[in-house]
Design a protein around this nucleic acid. Structure first.
Lengths: 341, 341
DNA sequence: CTACGCAACGAAAACGTTTTCGTGTTGACA
DNA sequence: TGTCAACACGAAAACGTTTTCGTTGCGTAG
C-alpha cells in the first residue's frame, strides 16, 4: 500500500527543490530540459497527481458545484441532475449532491455546510417547506458572500439570481386549451396546495384557460392535494362523484392515479375520460394507457442551469446583478390517455 | 458583498494571534475567559465558519464520499443514492456523485479525478462496459493507495473489497419456483446479455429452478437482450410466437414491455399470462396491471454501503483485508400481474 | 579585466486551519 | 528576595500546491 506521492517526496528523492519539481511538471521554461525530463519521468513512474484539495485551497476555487434538491427518488430531479452532471463534467467540474427531503432545516444545514469552501456555486430547487415559510435568508446570505446561485423549477421572486424554469402557467393553459378545443366541457383539475410554486402556476393556467373560453369554474372539480402519498381516495371520490369528461393533473402521479381510479369504476380512458398529466417521466411512458403529458425536459434544464452557473463562475469579475431567467420550452407529448386532440 | 471571514482577519481585528482565536473558538482551557468570550462574540457577529477545504488539507480527510454509478435516471440507483446520502449526512459526510454512463473510460476518469484528494472513499456499481472488459485496474489502484471502496449490486469477484449485494440467483430461483408451484409450465425468461453480472445470476436462478423441477430448458423461451432501448420488438416476437403462460423478466422495463406486448395481441395479464419482474420501482407500482416483482430495497443497500464505508474510514488503523459482503434480503412483492400465487 | 545578462534553480509566501512548543508575566512560597 | 509553577498567549510548523522573487554561476561583450 503506497500512499499518494507528493511534490515534496519527489523533490527529496531527486535532490532538487519543490519549486523545481512543480515547474518541471508544468513545463516551465525556467527549467532545463535535463531536469525537466528527469522529473517528469519520475513523476510518471510514481503516478504523481496533484492533490486537488491543496489546489482548491490555493486557488480559492474547488471546481465543484453544489446541488440541493428536495429528493432524488423522483424522475424529474434525477434527469436534472443528469443534465447538470454532464455539462459540469465536460467543463471539469464535479457535482456534490445533497437532499433537503422537502425540509427547510435540512436545506439550510446543507447549504451552510457546502457554503464553507466546499463548492464554487449552487444549483437548487426549493423544498416545499421553504416555499411554505417563505424564508430565504440562507440563500440571500450565500449570495451576499459572493457565491453564485442558480435556481430551477421551484424558484421564488424573493431571490435575485439566475433561474431556469418552464412557463408552468402557459404550459398548463395550452394543455387545458387543447382539451377544450377537443370539445371537453367538464374538465377537472388535480393539483397541489397553493404554496408549491409550480402547482399554483399550473392551477392558474387551468383557470385562465377555462375563463378564456367562458367556462364556469366549478370548485367541485378542483382538487387540491396536500399529502401526495395518500391521494388515491380523494381522486377516486372526485371521479366517482362528478360527471367529468377530462382531467388535467399537475403531475404524473395524480394522472396515473386518476386513470387507475377511473378504471376501478368502469370508466374507460380515453373513451370516457381524457387525462393529461404534467412531467414526462417513467410513469407516463409505461402506464396503460400511456399518458399524454406536458414534457419538461429535465436534462435540458440541468444543462442550462450548469451552463449559467459555470459561465458566472468563469467570468467572475463581470457586471454583477445581471441575472437572467431562462425559460425552457415545454411541449405536449401525445399518448394514449387522450383521444386525438 | 462581504467575503467569508477568516481566523487571520479576526486575529488582526482583535489584535491577538491566530492561535488565540483558534483556541478560543475551540474552547481551549489555555485561553482566559475574557478573551475567549470576546473572540467568540466577534466570530458569531461576523458569522465565522471554518473553511472546510483548509480543514480537509490539514486533516487529510474530506468527510466526503464519492459515488460512481452507471446512471442516475434509473429508479434503483436513485434509491441507493438516497440511502447513501441519508446515513452519510447523519454522520457528517457529504456525497459527491459521478456518472459513468455505462462507459469504462468515464468510470476511470471519474475515479482518478476523485481519488486525488477530493474524497475519503468510494461507493460504486460497475458500468456495463467495465463488466464486459473485466478491466478493474483503476479500482485496485485506488484500493492499493489505501482508499476504501464499497461496491454494490454490480460487483465482481476480481476485486477484494466490501460489497453490498442481493442474492440475485436465489431471488430469481424463488420467483420462478413460485410460478412453477402455481402450475405454470411454459415460463419464458427475458434477460440481459451475460456479461452484466446481475443479469447472468438471475438467468442462472431461472435455469436452476427449471432444472430442479425437471422442466426442460427451452432456448426459444430465453430472450437475451443487448440493447435495452430497443427491446420492444424482440419481446413482442417472443410472446407472439410461443405459447407461453408466464414470463420472468430480470428488470422492470422488460416486464412492462412484456405486458404491453401481450395486451397488443389480446393476451390478458394475469389471466392468460403471468408476469414477474425484478426491481420494485415506479413502473411496477403504477403499471396497469401493476407488476409482481422482486423487491431489492435500494434504500437499504445504500444505507448499508454507507455504513460499511464510514465504519472502515473511522476505524482506520484496524486489520485490513477483513472484507465483508453484505447480502440484503429480497422479497417478492405480489401485485396484479400474477394470479394468486 | 570588469560588468552585465541570462540560464537554472531555490527560498519563501500564500491559501486557512490546528497544534505543539515555547515565552513572558504573575503570584505564592521558602 | 529568589525560585518555581501556573497561566495566558504567540510563533511556527504542517497539510500540498503555485508563483514571485531572489540568487547563483557562467559566458560574452566592451
Amino acid at each position: 500500500m503506497k500512499r499518494k506521492v507528493t511534490l515534496k517526496q519527489i523533490a527529496k528523492e531527486l535532490d532538487v527543490s519543490i519549486s523545481t519539481v512543480s515547474k518541471s511538471l508544468r513545463d516551465s521554461p525556467e527549467i532545463s530540459e535535463d531536469t525537466r525530463l528527469k522529473v517528469q519521468a519520475f513523476a510518471k513512474l510514481y503516478n504523481y497527481k496533484p492533490n486537488l484539495i491543496a489546489l482548491s485551497l490555493k486557488n480559492r476555487k474547488t471546481k465543484t458545484i453544489g446541488i440541493i434538491i428536495p429528493e432524488i427518488v423522483h424522475h424529474f430531479f434525477a434527469t436534472v441532475i443528469s443534465g447538470i452532471e454532464h455539462v459540469a463534467n465536460e467543463k471539469g467540474y464535479n457535482v456534490i449532491v445533497t437532499l433537503s427531503d422537502e425540509s427547510f432545516d435540512k436545506e439550510v444545514i446543507n447549504m451552510d455546510m457546502l457554503a464553507n469552501g466546499s463548492i464554487d456555486g449552487f444549483i437548487m430547487s426549493l423544498s416545499k417547506e421553504t416555499q411554505y415559510r417563505r424564508d430565504f435568508h440562507h440563500i440571500t446570505e450565500v449570495i451576499n458572500q459572493g457565491m453564485p446561485v442558480v435556481m430551477f423549477d421551484r424558484v421564488t421572486n424573493d431571490i435575485l439570481c439566475d433561474k431556469v424554469i418552464i412557463d408552468d402557467n402557459l404550459a398548463a393553459f395550452e394543455a387545458v386549451q387543447k382539451l377544450i378545443n377537443a370539445g371537453f366541457k367538464k374538465i377537472a383539475l388535480i393539483t397541489t396546495v397553493d404554496y408549491v410554486s409550480v402547482g399554483k402556476l399550473r392551477t392558474d393556467g387551468y383557470i385562465k384557460a377555462l375563463k378564456t373560453n367562458d367556462i364556469a369554474i366549478d370548485p367541485d372539480l378542483i382538487l387540491k392535494i396536500e399529502d401526495i402519498d395518500n391521494c388515491t381516495e380523494q381522486i377516486e371520490t372526485l371521479i366517482k362523484n362528478n360527471k367529468i369528461d377530462a382531467v388535467f393533473a399537475v403531475n404524473e402521479l395524480f394522472a396515473v392515479t386518476a386513470i387507475k381510479g377511473a378504471k376501478k369504476y368502469g370508466i374507460n380512458v380515453p373513451e370516457d375520460l381524457a387525462v393529461i398529466g404534467f412531467t414526462d417521466g417513467i410513469i407516463s411512458k409505461y402506464s396503460s394507457p400511456s399518458i399524454t403529458t406536458v414534457g419538461q425536459n429535465g436534462i435540458e434544464m440541468g444543462n442550462k442551469a450548469a451552463q449559467m452557473l459555470i459561465d458566472r463562475l468563469e467570468t467572475e469579475l463581470q457586471e454583477e446583478e445581471h441575472y437572467k431567467t431562462e425559460v425552457i420550452e415545454t411541449h405536449l407529448v401525445i399518448r394514449e390517455s387522450t383521444p386525438t386532440l
